[in-house]
């Protein structure tokens, strides 16, 4: 009996939506939430301008650094018990 070998078709190297959604979906959602909050803010305060944006950036700056500092440690440290040294 002749064996039939089925060659797997090569995967397309282009953009894969599912993979991108899994990898970056949350980040995109966070930016969408931020954009939504900005829209709400401007709706509440129509004269929202450069000064307010500047103030927001000043307030977010130390927190952004603190968050990135914690991110790098969270990336390296697994909370699950792992035994390798």
């Amino acid at each position: 009996m002749a064996s039939t070998a089925v060659a797997e078709a090569p995967r397309p190297a282009g953009f894969r939506f599912g993979r991108a959604a899994r990898r970056y979906g949350w980040t995109v959602a966070v930016y969408a939430l931020f954009a939504l909050l900005m829209v709400i803010t401007i709706a509440i305060k129509p004269d929202y301008g450069a000064f307010e944006w500047n103030t927001l950036t000043l307030a977010a700056l130390p927190l952004a650094f603190a968050a990135v500092a914690q991110t790098i440690v969270c990336s390296a440290e697994a909370s699950t018990s792992q035994s390798a040294r």
Partner: peptide, 16 residues
């Protein structure tokens, strides 16, 4: 990218 956006969101909430 995510934490930086989140920092903005958390700073925006008290302003709102």
């Amino acid at each position: 990218l995510g934490p930086v956006a989140a920092a903005y969101i958390l700073s925006l909430i008290p302003a709102v």
